[in-house]
Simulated assay, not measured.
Amino acid sequence: MTVRPAPVRRRFGMPRWLLFTLLGLAALVILAILAGVGSLITWGVQTLSARPPAVGTTVVAPDESKAARALDALEEGTPEYEATAYLAEQPTTYWLTPEEDPLGEATSRVTTLAAEARDTGTALSVAIYGLPGRDCGNFSAGGLAEEDYATWIEEIARGLNAAPDVQKIVILEPDSLALAPECGNVEERIRQLRNAIDRLGGTNTWIYVDGGHSNWVPAAEMAALIDALDRDDAIRGFATNVSNYNHSTEEFVYAHELSDLLGGAHAIVDTSRSGAGSNGDWCNPSGRLIGEPGGTLGDEVVDTNLWVKPPGESDGTCNGGPAAGVWWPEAAVELTREAH
């Protein structure tokens, strides 16, 4: 009789190749799930952070502000030093100009400003002010050639897009639209601003174009200029009272009128020097005061108020002031006389 060998019992109930295949597939599934969860978390953070400005929004007080830089030239303990130090601490828009941040340096400036905002848990507000033919040859005359302007805007956009986690508020070319009929270059301005808007748009970047102010261009005319940009989906709305002195209540009424004509566009109101209202003079008028702090006002149309024009910077060589944009300590003292 032939004796058959006892069958070999396998420790596992399936071939090893099949077991290893199943384990590999399970590992891939787990990795895919973890990756998906990570993507959802990232998407959720970006969605939560990409919110438009609102009441409560606080912008960074830049270390590079003219107020902060002016302190080195002032004597401590003097009214000029105290007023300048106070204004240097206030959340205020930083103005990007070709004079301060020329071609080749704009990206690094924006990157630095965004890092300051990130480190302080604040938003970044910049006013871009370098359009060709800027200010129509008035006190703030200047700007870049059109080709250079396009390059400069690209540099700014590169810095903005490098900080998707930072809320970025862009006040695009104050006075550009309101002055265009007077300058006689409406079509040219519209083209330049369209190109700038197309380049500047990005994650968590909220663009507001020039909306004049309540005592300047009538709302119907201003709305037609903004509407000609044909960039409703690319901009948040318009900014009013930039570098002017009108009281916030007047600007809110004007912003609502303008928004109605534009189908619901949103607004930012500059309250940096609105505390005493306007006396009708736009260039270094006496007796003015700083206005409501940024991020304290707002409604369904006005996203919020900001200090766009840095209080203490001159409007131009008028009423005893230095050149436009130059720090004027005496003005800082007057504007803050009731603040501290």
Score class of each variant (00 low, 15 high):
1 M>D: 08
2 T>I: 11
5 P>L: 15
7 P>D: 11
8 V>Y: 10
9 R>G: 07
10 R>G: 07
15 P>S: 15
16 R>Y: 13
17 W>R: 15
19 L>M: 14
20 F>R: 02
23 L>W: 02
23 L>G: 03
23 L>D: 01
24 G>M: 03
32 A>L: 13
38 G>Q: 03
40 L>G: 08
40 L>S: 09
41 I>M: 03
41 I>V: 05
43 W>G: 11
43 W>C: 07
44 G>L: 00
51 R>W: 07
53 P>L: 11
56 G>A: 10
57 T>Y: 01
58 T>S: 04
59 V>T: 04
64 E>H: 06
67 A>V: 09
69 R>K: 15
69 R>L: 02
71 L>W: 04
72 D>N: 06
72 D>T: 06
73 A>S: 15
78 T>V: 09
80 E>L: 08
92 T>A: 12
95 W>G: 12
104 G>E: 10
109 R>Q: 15
112 T>I: 06
113 L>A: 14
115 A>F: 07
120 T>I: 08
124 L>C: 04
126 V>T: 12
126 V>I: 15
128 I>Y: 03
139 F>I: 05
145 A>Q: 15
147 E>I: 14
148 D>S: 14
154 E>C: 04
160 L>T: 11
161 N>F: 05
161 N>A: 15
161 N>M: 10
166 V>W: 01
169 I>K: 01
170 V>W: 01
180 A>S: 09
181 P>I: 00
181 P>K: 05
182 E>M: 09
182 E>H: 08
183 C>P: 05
183 C>E: 02
191 R>P: 05
194 R>V: 12
194 R>H: 08
198 D>G: 10
199 R>M: 13
199 R>Y: 09
200 L>R: 00
200 L>V: 14
209 V>C: 03
219 A>L: 02
222 M>G: 01
224 A>K: 14
225 L>W: 04
232 D>H: 15
232 D>G: 13
233 D>C: 08
235 I>S: 03
237 G>D: 07
237 G>P: 05
241 N>H: 05
248 S>P: 07
250 E>T: 15
257 E>G: 12
258 L>C: 06
260 D>L: 07
262 L>A: 11
262 L>D: 00
266 H>Y: 14
268 I>T: 05
271 T>P: 07
281 D>F: 01
287 G>Y: 09
290 I>P: 03
295 G>A: 13
299 D>E: 08
302 V>K: 12
303 D>C: 13
303 D>N: 11
304 T>H: 11
309 K>A: 14
315 D>C: 09
316 G>W: 08
316 G>L: 07
316 G>C: 13
321 G>W: 01
321 G>M: 04
324 A>W: 02
328 W>E: 12
330 E>P: 05
331 A>S: 08
332 A>D: 06
336 T>H: 07
338 E>R: 14
339 A>F: 02
340 H>V: 08
